[in-house]
């Protein structure tokens, strides 16, 4: 294998890995860095289960090459909790029963976090379109939208105080 050496930041930590130039960032995260919270549902950018942030921008890890992470900041679901505290979105997904099987949950959480960073007070429609790149087959999205609304409210309050 003609590997590429890549230096990057994952969830705030400096990380170095070697991968073939053709390997996706999704495979790197799952198979080389053991970040299996990033899920693979399709490998073609259609399901959003592998949603991560790259320099703060929401992307599908399956559509990014591992080599492209060089010098960038990668954020995954594993980095959402801070100082041992769950992120408000994580708390509200549990409180609102916004998951059944849970395979889409990491992708939804990352996508919802990115959405709320752009728009702290989204309407229902903005939430629905903001999360339209993530597929869930269990819930009909009802409780997911409610969880995001609840988390947004809590986060807005937190910001004011």
């Amino acid at each position: 294998m003609n590997g590429v050496t890549v230096s990057t930041t994952v969830n705030g930590d400096a990380v170095q890995f070697v991968c073939p130039p053709s390997e996706s960032l999704l495979d790197v995260l799952r198979n080389r860095l053991n970040l299996t919270g990033v899920k693979e549902g399709c490998g073609t950018g259609d399901c959003g289960a592998c949603s991560i942030t790259l320099d703060g921008r929401l992307v599908c890890a399956c559509l990014v090459l591992g080599a492209e992470a060089e010098g960038r900041e990668v954020g995954t679901v594993e980095g959402m909790s801070e100082n041992g505290e769950l992120h408000p979105l994580q708390v509200q997904f549990i409180e609102n029963a916004a998951l059944q099987c849970g395979i889409c949950t990491p992708g939804f959480l990352v996508a919802a976090k990115a959405l709320l960073e752009r728009n702290p007070n989204p309407t229902e429609e903005e939430i629905r379109y903001g999360l339209a790149g993530n597929l869930c087959r269990c819930t009909g999205y009802d409780k997911i939208v409610r969880a995001v609304q609840a988390a947004a409210k809590i986060m807005r309050k937190g910001r004011k105080s």
Partner: peptide
């Protein structure tokens, strides 16, 4: 009653192990 599910934290943190998550 509407209690929180016991596997909730594993599933919102990415710790839960699905079919492709073990080696």
């Amino acid at each position: 009653s509407r209690v929180n599910r016991p596997d909730g934290i594993d599933k919102v943190t990415g710790r839960a192990k699905y079919g492709a998550d073990v080696n």
